[in-house]
Simulated assay, not measured.
Amino acid sequence: MSKLPELTTLCYIEKEDKYLMMHRVKKEKDINKDKYIGVGGHFEYGESPDECLLREVKEETGLTLIKYKPRGIVTFIYGDENQPDERVVEYMYLYTSTEFEGEIIECDEGNLEWIDKADVYNLPIWEGDKIFFRLLEEREDYFSLKLVYSESGELISSEVI
């Protein structure tokens, strides 16, 4: 019997041509260890995507989003290709935000840093993240992206729908 998919949000907060990113260096058992990612996380039971987004951003950054925009949904599949029922499937709701209030707090999951958008591709990020960063730059419309990773974390395939 296959597992239920994971539901998550991810937000890239923007200011002065920079993204607020989290360098995931504080947890030992972390699939994102040493990588840079946006802020967000797993849904709590009964939450809508927007409720999850607002709660996770507040918990991780201390910021309250005033204005945000849903940009797409990213379907991640990762794990052993020979055991399809054991692979992890995650649906990630992707947002951007340009208006927020509050002061950035210390985060127990990683270090928060403002990164120039032009430098993002040179950071240690997932290969698939480069695809959705490009889509965020090139498109205003809502997109759907499917990323399939091997058990070792190698991007096997990607498809924009």
Rank of each mutant, 00 (worst) to 15 (best):
F76E: 13
F43L: 14
E56N: 05
D50K: 15
C52M: 05
T61C: 03
E60R: 08
V57W: 08
L53T: 04
G79P: 03
D50M: 15
G46V: 01
L54C: 06
R71M: 13
L65N: 09
N82Q: 08
G72T: 05
L63D: 12
F43Q: 06
E44T: 13
E60P: 01
P49G: 02
D85N: 09
G41R: 07
G62I: 06
Q83T: 12
P70S: 15
C52G: 03
F76C: 00
I66L: 14
L54E: 02
V39S: 10
L65V: 11
G62M: 05
E56Q: 14
T64P: 00
G40P: 01
H42M: 10
T64E: 08
F43N: 11
D85H: 04
P49C: 11
E47G: 03
E44D: 12
Q83P: 00
L63H: 04
V39T: 14
F43M: 11
P49D: 10
R71P: 05
F43S: 14
N82E: 15
P84F: 08
E59C: 06
Q83A: 13
S48K: 10
G79W: 02
E60D: 02
T64N: 08
F76Y: 15
G41L: 11
D50L: 11
K69V: 09
E81F: 12
Y36W: 09
R71A: 02
D85S: 04
I66C: 09
E56T: 01
D34F: 13
V57F: 07
Q83F: 10
K69C: 08
I73S: 01
R55S: 08
N82Y: 10
I37L: 03
T61K: 04
D34G: 04
E47H: 06
L53P: 07
C52S: 10
V39F: 07
E44W: 11
G79K: 02
I37D: 01
E44I: 12
K58W: 06
H42T: 14
T75P: 02
P49S: 10
P84E: 12
Y36L: 01
E51D: 04
E51K: 11
T75N: 04
C52H: 06
K69L: 09
P49K: 12
V39N: 08
R55G: 05
Y68W: 15
I66R: 08
D80N: 14
E56M: 10
G46I: 00
D80F: 07
N82H: 05
N82P: 00
D34V: 14
I37W: 01
K67Q: 13
E47A: 06
V57T: 07
Y68E: 11
T64Q: 00
G62V: 02
Y78D: 13
K67C: 12
Q83N: 13
S48Y: 05
C52E: 04
P49H: 07
K67T: 10
T64A: 08
I73K: 15
K67F: 04
K35M: 15
D50G: 06
D34N: 14
P70H: 13
G62C: 01
L65A: 06
E51C: 00
L65I: 10
D50W: 06
E44F: 08
G40R: 11
I37Y: 01
G62Y: 05
Y45G: 11
G79Y: 09
V57S: 02
D80L: 02
D80G: 03
Y78S: 15
L65T: 09
K58G: 00
G62H: 02
L54I: 12
I77Y: 03
V74H: 07
Q83G: 00
K69S: 09
Y45F: 00
P70G: 05
V74P: 09
G46D: 04
Y45R: 10
V57A: 02
